[in-house]
Amino acid sequence: MKDKVGIPRGMFYYDYYILWENFFNNLGVEIVLSPETNKDILDKGVHACVDEACLPVKVFHGHVDYLKDRVDYIFIPKFISVYRREYCCPKHLGLPDMVRHSMKGLPELIKPKVDLKKSNRDMKRAIIHTGKYFNKSAGAAIKAFNKAQNRFQRYMESIRQGAMPIHGIKYDEYNPSQILLLGHSYNIYDRYINMGIVDKLRANDAGVITVEMLDTHTMRKHTSGLSKRIFWTHGQRIVGGAFALMDEGLIDGIIYISSFGCGMDSVLMELTERRAKKLGIPFTILTIDEQTGEAGINTRIEAFLDMLKWRSKDEDNLPTHGEYIHSR
């Protein structure tokens, strides 16, 4: 019988799932992926997790809860660093330990440490460590990973061509305005916790760009002018990506999605908002938390899009909006 590995659909799932999926497939291991976030998962997560954690961490706990009785292992890597001289958010550093201490009745956790702060050598150790759970030799594990890595690179390439992460769907459509949807990947691509903002923007004829669509080199070039280096990798991506798109005049407005109480966001939002103000680019922040009422978020999105249209036309020509909740 094959061993089953559970992968919670949360946090770095939105960055690395394609890599993990291919790696485990190549090892011949069966994957069980938790479903898209739903009310039940959110409720379970809020219940299981420590109170002061941010929303995506709570949601992650909910996904672990879904998986715990269905699998033999749960895969929660301990992400310390994914880039030279940079760190991940402290919540990623402590994720497997947070889960381990908050939840009971868990299957064994596979929690390889990924620390590329000094060199890429640690990656190898993490791969071999994971392979051992399935009686794979170091060579076999590394071979499986390299193959997965190639597949992952192709996926990343399609994202850079403008496809939406995780499903890699590219929308070919003409949009009068392009909105940069900014924030952590797990807030932007989890359509339950952000109340389907991508679909809402599309329904209102706005194109959606995310920083995942830019290449690392471009992003890092644009943060090099800052007085202090950003030492969070997600921060580099968010600020660098926003700067690049703003400086090159490729976007009409920015919507920053932030989970309530995110410490990293408090810095990143300020940095991007200052640049946006200087360049006269509309910028708004949507704070997401455990609330499920959509009225507040809808009003802000509609008003923001009205503002963009207003700026590009005269005020006597306000367009009518489509509605979300019913059709005539």
């Binding site: 809808n298 009003t299 306000l318 009518t320 019913h326």
Partner: peptide, 28 residues
């Protein structure tokens, strides 16, 4: 207003607009 979609269902509106835009138009 926050009940604009409900009001639209009941009365049959020609335009459904968020409060920000409505207030701005009135202020202007």
């Amino acid at each position: 207003g926050s009940g604009r979609y409900l009001a639209d269902i009941i009365v049959g509106a020609d335009i459904v607009k968020n409060e920000i835009t409505a207030h701005a138009v009135a202020g202007l």
